[in-house]
Structure formats: C-alpha cells, structure tokens
Nucleic acid binder design. Structure first.
Lengths: 296, 296
DNA sequence: GCTTTCGGATTAGTTTATCTAATCCGTGGG
DNA sequence: CCCACGGATTAGATAAACTAATCCGAAAGC
C-alpha cells in the first residue's frame, strides 16, 4: 500500500488552474483568492521538485509534466465527484423505503397505496417486511410503520391506527365445537396469538373471564399467519378490525362477541428526527395521517 | 464541470478506515490520532447525510453506501498515487539533460563522453544545443555548459575551460590573398565572428593593431558554422584551441600568429543551486571537473 | 459479578494548513 | 507614460485539522 500523496488541496488547486490555464479563473471556480491558488500550486511544485507551469506575464502554459499530471488528476477528481454525487443523489432520490408487518402491508396498506402513488407519481416506494421496528442507523429504511407506544428515542412518531381486539374464528370451527355464547368457554378452546399473550389477557380481563388462562395456544408471530390459522380452523384468534375486516366481510371468519379491547398502543408511522426535512418523508407522512385519520 | 466535493481529507481518512475496517489502524497508517480519523469520518457522514460504517463495540463494518464509496475512492487515490509517483520517479531517474553549444558538443564534449558513460552506465544523457544559458525554471534542462563569467543568480557554476583566441584561416585563403605577416593586414581582409565582435576587438588591441576596425564581417553565431566558413575560405576567424585544434592538426585551417587573447570568461558547467543534491548532477560535475582540468 | 480490554466518540484546546488583503513585478497595449 | 492584466510575495487572520484526555458500550477474562 504505502501511498505517499502531497496535500490533497494542492492537487485540487493545480488541477483547476491547469484545466483553466489561469490561477484567477481557478480561484473563482474554487471560491478562493488567486493568492491561495498561487500558494497551493507553488507548494505542489516544490513537493514534486519540478515546474508544472510556464508563467508568462499574461499567459500560463503547462510544462510537459504539468500536462501529464493534469490529465490524470482531472480523471481522478471526476471519478470522486461521480462517486460522491452518486451517493448524494441516492440519498436525495425521490424514493422511500418502508418497513411494516406483512399483514399490515397486505390488509391495510396495499389497498390504499394506489391513491398515494397517483398523487405522488415521482415518489418510488419499496418495502421491507418486519414487525420489528427498524434500526435506522444500520439500514436504509426511511419510514417504519409499527405497533407500539410511539416512544422511540431519536425518532418522530405519529399514531395512525388504534387497534380494537376481539376474538374471531371460522364458521367450520364453530360447527365443530358448537356455538360460543360465553367468554368462559375459551377455557376449553385452543387460542391463537400474534406476538404475545397480551391482547388475549386484556380482553379476557375486560369481559370478566378471569378464570380463563390466556397463556395457552400458539404464538404465530405474524398477523397474516395468525388470521390464516383461524380461517383454517386451528383455533380462536384475537384480531383487530384493521386487519380482519375483509375476512369478516367474506365470511371466512366470524366475530364472536361485540366486546373489544382497545389497546393503548397504536400503529405508528416513525422515522429518524434527523430526516424530518426530507420532502418525500413529509409527503408520505402527511398523506398517511390524512387517510388513516386515526381510524379504529 | 461544477464539481462539488467534500473536504478531501475526510475522504482520505474514510478510505483508509474503510480499507482497514479500523479507525485506529487508519490513524497509524496516516500518522494521526484515532480521534482525528473519527472526526473526519463523522464529518464526511454528515456531509453525505448517510452512515458509512456500522459501529460495534469491538468491530467496524461498512454500510452498503460505505462499501460502494470505499471501492471508488480507493481506486481514485491509487490513481493519484500512481500519477504522483510517476512524476517523482521521472524526476529521480538517473538521467541528465545537458545544454551546450553544438560546436562545444561536437569538438570537445563528444570525444570525451564515452568515458563518462563507461564509468556511469546507469546515467542516461540527453542533449539540447544552444549557446544561450538555460532558463532552468521553464525547461527540463539539468546542466548547462556555456560561455560566460560564471555569475548567474540562483545557479552554481564551475569554470571548466578558459579560452585562448587567435586568428585562423584556410590555406586556400592564404594562397588567394598572400601571406599574412602583420596584424595590420586584417584591415583589408574579411573577418569572421562567432557571437559578437568582442574577441576580435580584444585580440587586435592586444597586438597593437588599433587601426584595424574589428566591427566588420559576418557574425555566424555558432562556432561550428564559424569554423566551417573559415575552412571554406570566406575569411579569417577568431577561434580557440578547444574547438579548433583538430582542424589545425588536419591542416584545414592555419594559425596565423602566436599571440593569443585569453578571455576572462570561460566555459562553465552550471545548474540550479536547488538541485545541488541531485546525485547524477554531482557525478557529472565531478567527472567533468576532473577531465577538463581547467585546460586551455 | 467484577475488572480489564478494546475501539470508537466526545470534549476542550492547540497547532498548522489554508486563506486573505495588499502590494509587487513584468510585461503588453493604448 | 499610464493603465491593465495576471501571477508572486508578504504578513497576518482564520478555519480546518489535529491532539490528549476521557467517556461509553460492550466483550472477554478471572
């Protein structure tokens, strides 16, 4: 390896002066004084121990080594510029990478996105599916939509949907196990959970079915999988309107009771505070807040 | 054009850290502290508004943009290094460019050079012919051998040959004009000059031929051309032993009087003081001083 | 569980490279 | 002769670059 380079600024100054064949024009281009260029070029010539320019009173010409060096350095600085602006453009491109759970994407977001894309055709969206909140420092995710209390350090978060939880099952499940007329019947039925037991626990508490142990049954860890398991008759699932409404409408699932457990948590839209000025993020945020409208 | 680059040093620090995947090792490589690298990388990340590294407690990894940038910058810095060391090597190559008059080259230097090349086979010599002293600032001449008083600002100069001037002409010229037995006869004969009238003026003064006007005849401006004109019978030339001895020996030219005008000037070897440590220059200088030995 | 080690981040100065304003210098043009 | 042009130089001023010391968050070792 062992590179040995002169001060980079001297090469930058030389390259500009050699391209423009004028210290004064180079100074203008680099937003410094002519004297600064003169110093830098002189410094480089001393480093290299060879003249790079022939100075005439009103004219500047390159020496042979100077001309050779100019071509090579121009190429290098062009490539650097390309690399840097490539990254800057990538950063400023009108595109957003969104992260959310797959069920939320499928059931709630997907049906609504055409409208966003119609309104903002210049903003490209891409997706990353996970119910875990993004680590914005180590991924290129721009916006995360996730379920939580909205208190994440360094992030700005906006609640978009509160969730109402209630038990559902398939008609086939009812046919096999008989009508479910009381919450106490859940003591003998298989329960299906999303991320944890929390929602079942709260719902049962709320309806006064303390005797039913909520910590039974499968944790599916994904809302889509949860709902599909219910549709397949594997048990009773604790679901929310936001995700389950179309299954109810289609008759794949049946709501068992009117009582709902409304969570203090909500689906939030979140992004790093430092990106709060990104126009694409602002556009998406504002559009989503309007359309979600804190619906249940 | 309109390049927009971050501070070059920040890119240099980043490139080293990304290559080594360690701020500490990068700091060692660049002979600065780890903190300096940390500052520079942070500065670049802020400029680009994107993280370039994933920092773990005992480990450093590149982000995707970081990795992309590393490859591109490594290439640029390698190319810069190649361009610069190419010039430095060119400068340090064991070669010398010499400037001298063509007559001096032909009559005095050429016969002696094989011995120098034999002793220093690693030093390449190239030539540029002119009797005018080199402008070292604007040419790539390393050593100049020229006639003068040895007082040139910024140069180191060593006298190598004093010149003795005396009139010569061809036998055919004598045959045509009759024997020349007195300097006063030059009043009626065509005179041939090298650079100016100075040497004829001084010689005539010295032999007491004040009545002869020395400012007549042709100025040939080149010792070779001067001597050839004399051989061709065009006049009487004022020549020096150093350049004319082989023509005298061959009988092409005849020396007319024993009196000589020894100039206070001499042929000097000269080079810029700032290059006084160049080994090739030292070798040539020392060799030449030994072999010239202040000969007449 | 506690201590040590590792390696980057931060703080508060210090140093030095970079830059500036002003002037000089050597033409060339009017 | 004077003015214009454009790079060079001088003497400071400024800002970037750097440093020593310490903090921080693990991970490793005992």
């Amino acid at each position: 390896m062992a590179r040995r380079l002169p001060p980079l600024n001297s090469m930058k100054a030389f390259e500009a002066a050699s391209r423009r064949l004028s210290f004064t024009l180079a100074a203008e281009e680099l937003h410094v004084t002519q004297a600064a260029i003169s110093h830098q070029v002189k410094s480089l010539e001393e480093y290299l121990q060879t003249p790079l320019f022939v100075r005439y009173p009103r004219k500047l010409e390159l020496t042979e080594p100077g001309e050779e060096l100019m071509h090579k350095l121009s190429k290098c600085f062009d490539e650097m510029d390309a690399a840097i602006s490539g990254l800057l453009q990538e950063h400023n491109r009108q595109s957003l990478k969104l992260r959310m759970g797959s069920a939320f994407a499928a059931k709630w977001m997907s049906p609504r996105l055409p409208e966003f894309s119609q309104q903002y055709p210049e903003i490209d969206l891409s997706f990353n599916y996970s119910q875990v909140i993004a680590d914005f420092d180590t991924t290129d995710v721009d916006i995360c939509i996730t379920f939580g209390n909205g208190e994440w350090p360094g992030l700005e978060a906006y609640p978009i949907i509160h969730l109402d939880f209630f038990p559902v099952c398939s008609p086939a499940f009812l046919h096999r196990h008989g009508e479910i007329t009381s919450p106490h019947q859940f003591a003998d039925l298989p329960l299906l959970h999303d991320l944890d037991y929390y929602t079942w626990t709260q719902w049962l508490l709320q309806v006064g079915a303390d005797g039913v142990n909520p910590r039974r049954g499968s944790i599916l860890d994904d809302s889509n999988v949860l709902m599909q398991a219910a549709i397949d008759g594997q048990g009773v699932a604790m679901c929310s309107t936001a995700l389950v409404s179309d299954h109810l409408a289609a008759g794949h699932l049946v709501r068992l009771f009117d009582e709902t457990f409304v969570s203090r948590w909500a689906y939030h839209l979140a992004y790093p505070s430092k990106n709060a000025n990104n126009p694409s993020i602002i556009a998406f945020r504002d559009w989503l807040l309007t359309h979600a409208n804190l619906e249940i």
